[in-house]
Simulated assay, not measured.
Amino acid sequence: MKHLIARYRAEAVKFALYRKTRDEIAMLPRSVAIDLGLFPEDADRIAREAVWG
């Protein structure tokens, strides 16, 4: 049971990091995002890859 709770906790932390990363990318001004080689429309994919690989 402890293992299951630890796993849920770890996934909750990862999901929080995913949401934060996604939101930060999505909120970048378009000119800054493009300078970084990012597109705000790809924020979901980029954040998912950054957190879960």
Rank of each mutant, 00 (worst) to 15 (best):
V32T: 13
M1I: 11
K14N: 00
A43K: 01
R30T: 13
G37I: 02
F15S: 03
A47V: 07
S31D: 13
R45D: 02
F39E: 12
Y18W: 11
E11I: 15
V13G: 07
K20S: 09
R19L: 05
I25C: 00
P29K: 02
W52C: 01
K14P: 00
H3P: 03
Y8F: 13
A16H: 04
A47S: 06
A12S: 14
A50E: 03
R9L: 14
R45P: 00
F39S: 12
E49H: 13
V13L: 14
R45Y: 03
A43L: 04
W52H: 04
D35M: 14
D35G: 14
A12D: 13
R9D: 12
P29A: 05
F15L: 09
H3G: 09
A50S: 04
T21A: 08
D42E: 08
R48P: 00
V51G: 03
I5G: 05
M1V: 14
E49Q: 13
L17Q: 06
T21I: 05
A43M: 06
A12E: 13
L4G: 00
Y18F: 15
R22Q: 08
L38R: 05
K2F: 13
A10M: 13
Y18T: 02
V51K: 05
Y8C: 11
I46C: 06
R48T: 01
E24S: 15
R19Y: 01
R9F: 08
L4A: 04
E49S: 12
A12K: 12
A6N: 13
R9C: 12
V51W: 07
E24Q: 14
R19Q: 11
F39W: 12
R22S: 00
I5S: 07
L4E: 11
D35I: 09
E24A: 15
E49V: 08
M27Y: 09
A47I: 00
L28W: 02
V51C: 02
A12V: 06
F15E: 10
L4Y: 03
Y8W: 15
R19P: 01
T21C: 09
K2L: 15
A10G: 10
D44E: 10
D35N: 14
A43D: 03
M1T: 15
A43G: 10
L36R: 15
A50F: 04
T21M: 06
A43W: 03
H3Q: 09
G37L: 10
A26T: 04
L4T: 05
R19H: 00
D35P: 06
W52I: 00
A16T: 09
S31P: 03
L28T: 02
L4P: 01
L38P: 01
D44N: 07
G53Y: 08
A33K: 07
A16G: 07
R19N: 01
D23M: 10
I46H: 02
V13H: 06
K14G: 02
E11H: 12
M27V: 12
G53R: 10
V32P: 04
I25R: 01
G53C: 07
D44Y: 06
P29D: 11
